[in-house]
Design a protein around this nucleic acid. Structure first.
Lengths: 224, 224
DNA sequence: TCGTTGACTAAACGCTGTTCAACAACTACG
DNA sequence: CGTAGTTGTTGAACAGCGTTTAGTCAACGA
């Protein structure tokens, strides 16, 4: 049953066989990626609400049923896209937090966060303002290496650095880190939601937030 | 055409006529309220996503089409509910900000905000995390007396009080006020979205946030 | 009693996500 | 080469959605 014929090792037969299999797998991967690209395009250009399976199918020039050969549901597509977003956000944040001075890193991180959010509103909506399924997946403890968890750890690390530098010595590190993230999220999400209101610019608010957090009592100015 | 027959003043004829009209109007108001109550019940118990016209019609024991005799659309129902929510939130916030000490008022406001949000998650979602149509209406400049605008002004007033008390003298009042609101919103909305994550308690984070904001440089402690 | 008004709804339209049987095309094998 | 079998693809359907409209029916005023 599981025995392998010796001629399977013959390149003259194995070659074509594996070639077909490889091509099929490659085409499947390409198709999958094509779907994700089209979905991303729809979301960024027409908003998350406009992402329907039929519209998506029309754009990739296949039937709606075909999409289900690659994804289990519409939710799964959205979730995979949100993970891409978390990856992008993580990249921006880690670049910012790489600054040697902890306070400078905090300011840069705040700026990078709100900029990413404002420049990718629908993506941000998908990541943080949806039905909470994506975040659960993104931050799942099982997926230790997920971008969401990494971004969370980035905040913890930065908070630790800040406290070592004398900022907010008294506060619990985790709470301090979470507060930073939540304040930045509040700035972005309200700017996304309240398009009618003329709020202060996200950059200004992020700067103010990080300044107030880093200017809390106990601060010992770092050199340079 | 507009002349009123003298016998219209006769109670024996005017009574029944107006009585019927009044009853019909009253019944219409009651029906309208019944719909709103049912919608609120569905949202709070089954979530905003579960609010459909057909389900709503089933609950009030009328046909879906009947609802359109009272509301123009599903969105309108949601919007009116969100305005109720803004009213409730405003009530909590104004009670908290009534404390004579500005810093105490800030702490109380923060606590009241996150408590309302956590105890009315689906309502909060409707108010702040929807498709942004409700907030536009709630904060519309035309609706000067709307609860949303009043809540916004509450924050401005509190920020002014805080700065008069010596907190954040340098910062622009409006930006300071907006930052308070956004930080609190970030705490609540992330707690609503990330039900999978074990975050620090909203109360602790609100306290930390308001403490850091009120502990910023320039603070002159108030008496008592 | 009759005509009018108003409340009410069945049915339909076009949309949604999703499933499944059927079809077509390509591969493998005798 | 032809045939059996696997694989990719889809039309059609199901259940549900928000919304509209034509039409029914009861209550009212004259």
């Amino acid at each position: 049953m599981n025995s392998v014929p010796s001629d399977m090792l013959d390149i003259s037969k194995e070659g074509p066989q594996l070639g077909v299999q490889e091509r099929r797998e490659r085409e499947k991967r390409e198709q999958r990626q094509k779907i994700l690209n089209a979905a991303l395009q729809i979301i960024t250009k027409e908003g998350y609400a406009a992402l329907s399976m039929r519209r998506l199918a029309e754009r990739i020039e296949y039937s709606p049923a075909s999409i289900y050969l690659h994804f289990g549901s519409r939710e799964q597509i959205a979730q995979e896209l949100s993970e891409v977003g978390f990856g992008e956000l993580l990249q921006q944040l880690s670049a910012a937090s790489a600054l040697p001075n902890a306070v400078h890193a905090l300011h840069a991180l705040g700026l990078a966060y709100v900029r990413y959010g404002m420049e990718n509103r629908e993506m941000y909506r998908l990541m943080f303002m949806g039905d909470s399924e994506y975040m659960i997946a993104a931050f799942s403890k099982q997926t230790e290496a997920s971008a969401g968890v990494k971004a969370y750890r980035l905040l913890i690390d930065l908070a630790t650095r800040l406290q070592k530098a004398g900022v907010m010595k008294d506060a619990a590190t985790v709470e301090f880190a979470e507060l930073i993230g939540m304040a930045l999220h509040g700035i972005v999400s309200l700017h996304i939601t309240c398009i009618g209101l003329q709020l202060a610019s996200p950059e200004k608010l992020a700067r103010l937030a990080t300044e107030m957090l880093s200017a809390a009592p106990g601060l010992v100015p770092e050199k340079a």
